[in-house]
């Protein structure tokens, strides 16, 4: 099977203060044309580094092992013109902070037509007409006026739509979206997501969608990968993610998030804080925070286990725990006492 994007055994180390620090460990992922793959994780999990590696945007001195193949071609082997074409035409990025990724002294028109003029060698007039069309496509009213405006004259949501318009301008086959809606209001997020989905369907693009929001990934992605400490810990259908998580970390994230329709007596928080690949202990990286951890978990780094047709997990206890992760919230710890009190309270009402 040939996926559009194929990442295999990717391990990345970055030079920090004279030493190489691991940021990604043995990451595998594949994304088929036209599909959306979610990449979920907390800070330091390696989501952004994965995307930067795919876009070949790693800093100098980075130590990279493994493969990234785009449409069968090895991305790390691309040089010169081929690399330029890959970055300019095949893959484009949408960043979290649109304001930081636009030039404040250039008008939106320059921003939108630059790629068209330089890569597609389109005449200026035609590029402008195309830019107007693109802005209209992403639901921006009065596009002619917007072309003459500067980034500071646009709101965050509007600017992010311009970013999306610019990234689809060259008809890329893959969009790398790095938390594109995190800085936006919820209603604006809904608008931006619907535009992204429509553009994706229209142009048949694949999207690698990075987010820290499990619910958002569940709602918009086909499959989702959960990263922790630079490793893939789970992969499965996004819609199953909250209902039947395959890793204790995912389950803990689902439970730690407050619910809009219910006030918990106490939230089942995950003790400790997220670790990076560099700080991760031997054995399972999540073991120190995991309430299901046993001695065996700390002994060796678990490999990815296939769980039937459903997906894969990096938890050696999964065959045993499958389906039970969400049933309880921690045995004997403080949270569970409160949880029980919570249940008791509900019952007496």
């Amino acid at each position: 099977m040939t996926a559009l994007l194929n990442v295999n055994g990717l391990t990345v180390k970055l030079p920090v203060m004279g030493e190489l620090r691991t940021v990604l460990r043995d990451v595998d992922l594949e994304l088929e044309a036209g599909k959306t793959l979610g990449l979920v994780g907390e800070s330091g999990s390696g989501k952004s580094m994965t995307v930067r590696t795919i876009a070949r945007l790693l800093p100098d001195g980075a130590d990279v092992k493994g493969h990234v193949r785009f449409d069968g071609a090895e991305v790390f082997d691309l040089r010169g013109e081929a690399l330029r074409r890959y970055r300019a035409g095949d893959v484009s990025m949408v960043f979290q902070d649109a304001r930081a990724h636009t030039n404040p002294v250039r008008r939106m028109g320059d921003f939108l037509t630059e790629a068209l003029c330089t890569n597609d060698r389109m005449p200026r007039r035609a590029a402008e007409a195309k830019a107007i069309q693109l802005l209209a496509d992403v639901g921006i009213s009065d596009p002619e006026r917007r072309l003459r405006q500067y980034p500071h004259e646009l709101s965050g949501g509007l600017l992010q739509r311009v970013m999306i318009a610019a990234s689809v301008a060259v008809r890329p086959r893959l969009i790398l979206a790095d938390e594109p809606t995190t800085a936006l209001d919820v209603t604006t997020q809904a608008e931006v997501m619907s535009i992204l989905a429509r553009m994706q369907a229209e142009y048949g693009m694949a999207v690698l969608f990075i987010t820290h929001d499990l619910e958002l990934a569940g709602a918009v992605c086909d499959d989702t990968i959960v990263l922790y400490a630079g490793q893939v810990v789970e992969r499965q259908r996004s819609t199953q993610l909250h209902r039947d998580p395959l890793h204790p970390y995912t389950a803990a994230l689902v439970q730690a998030r407050p619910e809009i329709g219910h006030r918990a007596r106490r939230l089942p928080a995950i003790p400790g804080h997220p670790t990076t690949a560099y700080e991760a202990p031997g054995g399972c990286a999540f073991a120190p925070r995991c309430r299901f951890a046993q001695d065996a978990c700390r002994r060796a780094v678990p490999s990815l286990l296939q769980i039937g047709e459903q997906g894969s997990t990096r938890c050696i206890r999964m065959p045993d725990l499958h389906g039970r992760l969400l049933a309880t919230t921690g045995a004997g710890d403080e949270a569970s006492d409160h949880q029980r009190a919570d249940a008791a309270e509900e019952a007496t009402r």
Binding site: V186, Q189, E191, S194, L216, G218, V220, T239
Partner: peptide
Amino acid sequence: LDDPHHAYTRLLRDSVPRDGWDPASLA
């Protein structure tokens, strides 16, 4: 939150991503 009376409160609530979320209909 459970029974919002104002249309804007409803929009805020419905904009939160969840199962079967349809951003297009909200937009």
